[in-house]
Design a binder for these strands. Structure first.
Lengths: 190, 190
DNA sequence: CCAATTAGTTTAAAATATCAAACAAAAAGC
DNA sequence: GCTTTTTGTTTGATATTTTAAACTAATTGG
């Protein structure tokens, strides 16, 4: 954070000399000079006085972009950074259309069963198994999911979840669709 | 601009005592005390040191919203529990509009950071912490999430995830929106 | 060209911030 | 209850910033 440079750039942008800014701010010109040269580290009160000379808020002062940059490109840069900073992401579901979102943490005791397959309205559902094992039936095809496995399907297809194992199973799921706006129905409907 | 109050609120939000923050920042506790009581007006260098203790950038510090607003996170105990045929469901987010769905399993090593807050296109994001601790910033408000806690927010708000803890953190998240149709961008963009 | 103005820099007192340590008050253990 | 720990506050010594004024350099105008 080069405070001095920041102040100087902004001051010049306003077309003010050190003395002119100092006068408006109620400080001496030497103060401005030293701050800009980073000879001193101004007190917060002094900084406030100086900014009043523009005038400019503290937030604005610190968030002002000194270099003109393209917003889109800035985003791309941020995105690259994030991956470089060690965040590992596993995409479980992909290619999605339209609709609302609900996320559920589902705990399946041994033997639990969502019951006979049922059809929800237009929507999608994705999920991943956190703990235990789950049997998933979608469109009359049977899948066995273990921790780390994920799934994605259209809720227009008949589906069912069962825990046939000996231990409790935990699934984190999210689903979209008209029913999502009615949590109760969604929950029971699962 | 009540600098003292601002610092105090943010410090407490981070769950730090004056001494603890001082230690991390490399200043004395008396400095923190006096700044918070507005007894002194800290030098910019001191302020920088203090913010490093969080850590937090100056921009973020001054733009952070101090007031509590719309609920963004849903604590473990706040989440609606539902039972359907022996399946325990915890509703984490609710009331959702329209859009597609993507689900991610996100692994945050200690120190991981999604980087500067960024704004995605129209959409929503919900999630829950499976393991470890995560610091979530949404719309310049900070939340600390622990296993069982969940969150929900509009991706039009600037947001950021960080793991400030010593252990790996795992979050299951789902998000909707136009970007969801582009898995790569979505994944990295988080 | 030479004074007069304006620019930014530097210097030694005055004002202020920071540190180290002691203080008070509350919370946590026992 | 009592001690120990943790919290935030205060105080005198030290370090830093701020001022006021002098200084340099460049520019403007006559």
């Amino acid at each position: 954070m080069d405070l001095g440079e920041r102040l100087q750039v902004i001051r010049k942008r306003h077309g003010l000399s050190q003395r002119e800014l100092a006068k408006r701010a109620g400080v001496t010109n030497s103060t401005i000079s030293m701050i800009e040269k980073n000879t001193v580290s101004p007190s917060f009160s002094s900084l406030l006085k100086v900014l009043k000379g523009f005038p400019m808020s503290v937030e604005e002062f610190f968030t002002l972009d000194l270099v003109k940059s393209d917003q889109v490109i800035f985003r791309a840069h941020e995105q690259a950074e994030m991956q470089a900073q060690g965040v590992a992401l596993q995409l479980i579901g992909h290619n999605i259309p339209d609709r609302g979102l609900s996320m559920l943490k589902e705990t399946y005791p041994p033997g639990a069963d969502t019951g006979a397959e049922m059809i929800k309205y237009e929507g999608e559902e994705a999920g991943t198994v956190i703990e235990g094992e789950i049997e998933l039936t979608v469109d009359y095809k049977i899948y066995h999911l273990q921790p780390g496995d994920g799934y994605f399907f259209r809720t227009t297809l008949p589906h069912r979840f069962r825990n046939l194992g000996q231990h409790t199973a935990i699934v984190i799921s999210a689903n979209t669709g008209p029913t999502s706006t009615h949590p109760d129905q969604t929950a029971i409907g699962k």
